[in-house]
Simulated assay, not measured.
Amino acid sequence: MRSLLPLAPLRETFLGEMLLSLPDNMYTLKKSLGQHFLTDENISRKIVESLPVSDGQQVLEVGPGAGAITKYLLQIPGIHFKAVELDTEKVTYLEKTYPAIQGKLINESILDTALPFEGPFRIIGNFPYNISTQIMFKVLEWRPQVDIVVGMFQKEVAQRIASPHGNKDYGILSVLLQAFYKIEYLFEVHENCFNPPPKVKSAVIRLTRLEQPADIASERKFFVLVKTAFGQRRKQLRNPLKTMFSKELLASDPIFSKRAEELTVADFAALSHKMI
C-alpha cells in the first residue's frame, strides 16, 4: 500500500496503471507494487499520532508513496526522520513536493535496506500489503534497535499478528512477534479511504517491544519449532514434531496431544528448551 495527497484526479492508461495529476507534478500508480494511496487526512493524522516520539527520536517510514503520512511526520519537531521508498518516481515526487525531505530518502526496497540508523529507532508506515509479512520478519531482525512499530496492514494480516492462542487466525506470525512484542490492534480503515479503493479491508496495529521477552532456548530453535508446528496445524503436535523431541517425552507429555493453535507463546518457549 502507498499514500496519496487528496483530491488528485486520475485516469486509466493503456499500461494498466493510473496517472495521478497534481499541480506541477504527475506520477503513476503502479499495480505491480500493490499501490493504493491513502486519501483520508484524518486517518493519516491518526496513524502518525499512534507513534509515540520524544525529542531526538529516530523514525523510519516504510513506503511513503506520495506523502499522506510523511507530511505529518515532517512536521514533528525534534525527530530524526528517514523514509525508504522503492519507487524512484515517488522519490522524485516527494523531493519536489516536500523540500524538507531532501537527503532523508532511501531509494530501495525495505527488504534490502541496511540498518538506517545507529542506535534505537521506531518504524511507521502504510506498509506495502504484498510484502507486509516479510517486513515483520525484517522487524524481528532489527529487534535490538526497534522498540515500537506502527503500521497499516491488510485487515486479515493485522488480525493474524494480534490473534491470541486458540483462535483460527493464530499462527506463525502471531507467535514469533508476540514472543518479543506487545501487539495492540488500534483501529480499522475503510477501503473508501484509499484511491483506488482496495478489495480488502485494512487495520492499524502497534507493536511495543517487551521488556521481558519470551524465554526461548535460541531464536533458531524457536523459529524452527513454531514453523514446523504450524506446518501441520490440524494434527496433534506429536506428529509434525516427532523428530525434534525424544520418544519418551512425546509419549509422556500431554502437550503433544494438542494442536499448534492451542499452545500459548510461553508454551512454545518452554518447548524450545526441551528440543533434541
Rank of each mutant, 00 (worst) to 15 (best):
L140D: 08
T133I: 08
L176S: 00
A179E: 10
I172D: 00
V175F: 01
V149S: 01
Q154D: 00
L173W: 04
S174D: 07
F187V: 02
F137Q: 12
F137H: 15
I135N: 04
Y170S: 07
G166I: 01
R160L: 03
K182P: 06
F187H: 10
V146S: 07
V150H: 04
V139P: 08
V189F: 04
K155Q: 12
Y185M: 11
A162S: 11
P144F: 10
E141Q: 09
I183P: 05
S163E: 07
Q159M: 11
R143I: 12
L176P: 01
I135A: 01
W142Y: 12
K155W: 10
I135H: 01
V189M: 15
D147G: 13
K155D: 03
Q134T: 15
F137E: 14
H165V: 04
L176I: 00
V157G: 03
L173N: 06
S163V: 10
Q134M: 07
I161W: 09
N167Q: 14
S174T: 06
L186N: 10
L173H: 03
V146L: 04
Q134H: 15
Q145F: 14
P164K: 14
G151T: 12
T133N: 08
F180P: 07
K138R: 13
Q154M: 08
A158I: 13
V146C: 05
L177V: 00
V149Q: 09
L186F: 05
G171D: 11
V157Q: 05
A158T: 13
V139I: 15
E156I: 12
G151Y: 08
Q134K: 14
Y170C: 06
V189P: 09
L186G: 10
V149T: 07
I172L: 06
F180S: 02
T133V: 12
L176T: 00
L140N: 06
L177I: 00
K168Y: 06
H190L: 10
P144K: 05
F180M: 07
G166Y: 00
E188P: 06
I148L: 05
A158Q: 05
R143E: 15
D169L: 10
V149H: 01
N167C: 10
S174C: 01
Y170Q: 06
A162P: 06
V150E: 03
I135M: 09
I172A: 00
I135S: 02
A179G: 07
I172Y: 06
A162Y: 01
E141A: 13
Q145Y: 09
Y181G: 00
I161L: 04
E141S: 15
A179R: 00
D147W: 11
S174W: 01
N167R: 13
I148K: 11
K168N: 11
L176N: 02
I172E: 03
I148R: 07
L176M: 02
K168Q: 10
Q154Y: 12
R143P: 03
M136T: 15
F187L: 02
I161C: 02
